[in-house]
Design a protein around this nucleic acid. Structure first.
Lengths: 138, 138
DNA sequence: AAATATATACGAAGCGCTTCGTATTTGCAA
DNA sequence: TTGCAAATACGAAGCGCTTCGTATATATTT
């Protein structure tokens, strides 16, 4: 299980959002400032060169982070792992390095910042109650 | 506001746990396998060289991550920023890069893993209810 | 067909993080 | 005081990530 780097992650985001894409399409989307709801990413100060994206995606193919279809001249790439699975992996690492492995500490810190809306808090609460129920019946 | 790297973070953890320390003391603690409750860190496979720790801490002093008292021959280091503040900074970065800035997504993902104890869930729930009350009165 | 545009492949430089070797200084002991 | 132990300072190598220049192949247009 290999975790993507920051640069790789930005490419994966594009692939997750916009399905199978060519290098050109990915590069365009990285440079164009289209902030999809979930994906809130700041547009780069300096445009990313085409060959930069190409090289990165080639590396990702080597690492197995993406699959590529080379049947046509413009190769078509797809993310190898889903968004959830990837986020879980990154989260695991992060919790380990920054919170000594305690997910609860992380959550408390994340909620403590105080920018969660009432609806979000309600959603989290709902999840907790669901988990508590599962616990009780386990 | 500068965020520590992984290596720097492991040193900060030691300083947070054990107050002002010399390089020697930090290096010893990094190599000795003393897993403090909060700090659950795996002991390194290969011992960390003394000068490695020294250099890293010198860099940290340059960056302002630690303060050092050079009045005695063995310099004494203290963490410049507190644990909470540092974790907040790292969390902010991580949420941005991995969850597109949505703390709620992060929390949902963190809780979804399903290894939180009943007591932990209760603690989180308590915090949420406290936040909801603050919201209501804001 | 020739010229132009667009694709991939590849090597290498730049940068930050980490690690270590080595020189130098300082304190302590024989 | 002479020698040994332990500390700091410093330079540089190694590695991974990112970026880019350039070579080469393949379409497309004129």
């Amino acid at each position: 299980m290999l975790s993507p780097t920051d640069g790789e992650l930005s490419i994966l985001r594009v692939l997750w959002d916009a399905g199978p894409l060519t290098v050109r399409e990915v590069n365009d989307r990285l440079n164009r400032r289209l902030r999809n709801k979930q994906t809130a990413e700041a547009p780069p100060d300096k445009p990313i060169g085409y060959t930069t994206t190409l090289k990165l995606m080639q590396v990702m193919a080597d690492k197995g982070l993406v699959h590529r279809d080379t049947s046509s001249r413009s190769h078509v790439y797809t993310a190898a792992a889903g968004r959830e699975r990837t986020q879980q992996g990154l989260l695991r690492r992060f919790v380990q390095s920054t919170f000594g492995g305690s997910r609860t500490q992380l959550v408390l810190r994340a909620l403590g910042e105080g920018d969660a809306s009432a609806a979000e808090l309600a959603e989290i609460k709902r999840l907790i109650e669901k988990l508590e129920n599962e616990d009780r019946h386990a």
